[in-house]
Design a protein around this nucleic acid. Sequence first.
DNA 1: GGGTATGGTCTCAAATGTAGACCGACGACT
DNA 2: AGTCGTCGGTCTACATTTGAGACCATACCC
Lengths: 152, 152
Amino acid sequence: MTREHPGNPVVLDATARQVLQVFSEKSAALFAPEAPAPDMDNCPVRDVLARVGDKWSLLILVALSQQPHRFSALQRQVGDISKRMLTQSLRMLERDGLVSRHVFPTKPPSVEYALTALGEAALVPIAALLDWAAGAHDDIRAARLRYDAEAG
Amino acid sequence: MTREHPGNPVVLDATARQVLQVFSEKSAALFAPEAPAPDMDNCPVRDVLARVGDKWSLLILVALSQQPHRFSALQRQVGDISKRMLTQSLRMLERDGLVSRHVFPTKPPSVEYALTALGEAALVPIAALLDWAAGAHDDIRAARLRYDAEAG
DNA sequence: GGGTATGGTCTCAAATGTAGACCGACGACT
DNA sequence: AGTCGTCGGTCTACATTTGAGACCATACCC
């Protein structure tokens, strides 16, 4: 049974096509030929994408784009993340130099997380992704309904 | 102990700052206030981002950007994905209308996956992400080394 | 006839993520 | 003074997801 459906037609303008041409040249960086493991040494671009594309990391970076946050405030803003995952994600973002962590000499402890310059730079492509998602989610919802209607 | 380090300085040009301003206005879409669950109904933008940012979906979309692929060819190109995850990811991308699936009347079965117009449109922000990742991975690697040196 | 490839499904083990208890100190409230 | 909530996590038990490999029928190639 063929489940093919073409999606809503979207016309790519000249700028978009130009971006895609450069894109094709660079996408090879994502697929290491016969690499034992596509990690930071073999596939750095892929490794970095896995970080920035990660669900929680993405949301944390966006949350911090407006202003620095405390740990609990970040957890409240993101909403459905566990403490364990928030700690782990922040730890990795800090390690990658995308987020900074400042501990205040208070008791109980008070910690502030903020974007670094590198983290702020990441917001530019993330903004493009956000913009696309905002424009595409109606089409995606419609596609899901068609698919589900066909399948059962 | 403060583990703060500012990351390498990156100067954002005027265009980037303009993008960020619009971005701040739109990022609210990612954080539903007190939503029971941030799903497609409560947080459509977030739901779509979770799809496109997903590690395997991202790689599949990029792999298909150059030309359509068969299932096994896609698995070889991506490299370290399991059959189970490839099937599941393709199934979801098809359901979202980003990828099309064409079954040829052959035995054994032969299936071709290709990007739809909507999937191709997603490549524009994905290309921006890829471009940023290509430019940032050296800084990220350096940040990781500094972090690891401090921590032990 | 044997080996390889096709596009998956299924099962089990391993890995990852969630929820909540727990910690000491402090501020707010009664 | 006593109680409660908050802070920023860690830890544990459990739930969920993912990876690895066996398995399937068919066809092609040697």
